[in-house]
């Protein structure tokens, strides 16, 4: 179902498994990604965007899929979030990307989700965004946020020290 290849494994920072309907740990994956990028010295504005993207991606997998994974990559010029799930899939992506469209049930709405703003916000905060879905099979999403030009990975700095 993937449209474009994922970044090379060299840049892979982490892979997280998610289970559908597990709202108890919702937000944990996003928080790990955020902390890890902070430790790497990634600029704040990039981290802010990634936090929104990762959280909305995570909640959608928990809400609409049986299981899924979120991977994140730190490249020299960008951070990439990649998600794959074996969920119900999305019938009409165009529609799902419109603000206000939601198929969330009451149990999801009671927790404050289901405004139909997750995907539109992921797209808004991404510099590059791609979503592919097959009803009944699952959904693939890739989002990139560019780093500003003067960022250098902490590991690189350490190597040069």
């Amino acid at each position: 179902m993937k449209k474009s290849p994922a970044p090379s494994e060299v840049y892979l920072e982490g892979v997280f498994q998610l289970r559908g309907r597990d709202f108890v740990d919702a937000g944990l994956v996003s928080s790990r990604i955020k902390n890890s990028l902070k430790n790497k010295g990634v600029p704040e504005d990039t981290i802010r965007k990634i936090a929104v993207i990762a959280f909305e991606t995570e909640i959608n997998i928990i809400s609409y899929a049986k299981e899924g994974t979120i991977s994140f990559y730190l490249l020299p010029d960008r951070v990439v979030i990649e998600a794959e799930d074996s969920g119900e899939g999305i019938e009409n992506i165009e529609m799902a990307l419109q603000e206000g469209f939601s198929t969330a049930d009451d149990s999801i709405r009671e927790m404050g989700f289901g405004a139909g703003m997750g995907l539109p916000n992921i797209r808004k905060f991404s510099d590059d965004f791609e979503i592919v879905s097959e009803p009944g099979r699952g959904t693939y999403l890739k989002s990139s946020v560019m780093l500003n030009g003067n960022y250098r990975a902490k590991d690189d700095q350490d190597d040069n020290a």
Binding site: G27, A51, F55, M111, G112
Partner: peptide, 13 residues
């Protein structure tokens, strides 16, 4: 909202 997800949001933000 009173569900524990609010803590995840407040912490991330």
């Amino acid at each position: 909202q009173v569900h524990q997800n609010i803590v995840a949001v407040a912490s991330l933000k």
